[in-house]
Amino acid sequence: MQHHTVLKVAAKLLLPFILLFALYVQFHGDFGPGGGFQAGVIFGAGIILYALVFGTGHARAVVPPGAVRAAAALGVLLYTGVGVASLLLGANFLDYGILAADPVAGQHLGILLVELGVGLTVTAVMILLFYAFAGVEGAETDRAVANRDGAERAAAERAVADRGGASRAGPDWTSTS
């Protein structure tokens, strides 16, 4: 999708707002609909949009796979960390009331941190899934394309044999050049 100027310009214009909206959903989840899950998915979708329009190579430069892998683990670690912290302070596991002097403030802090953990893990796993499925550019993609072309041809021949229909080409998310 490297030659679609309209797509590129539109994506560039939309991206900051998508990422900002994700942050709003993340931190406004206490007051309105939203929370870590939704925010994580929206943030991940923003990065995936970038990868789709500008190529996975550019997305990998902005959001390195190593960082994604670390963030996925960090989110779960943050969530359990809050639980262990309340445990060490003398309350039950994930009993946030103990985290601050005032139980309500402690609850608020605990919910904020836990939602942040959820958001981190969900964002990271969504990007990770896309990276894994989109694959590497280069050798692997060429092989995938060759596989698909062969299969398409076979399917088209079958379809023609079956009822004279034509086959449809699949989307190619991984091409860069």
């Binding site: 995936i48 596989n147 079958r158 989307p171």
Partner: peptide
Amino acid sequence: GISTILMLATLARTNARQRA
């Protein structure tokens, strides 16, 4: 959103038609 994109990404790796 995400599920559709992931399914399309999977289709890009495999085959876009079901075997008859």
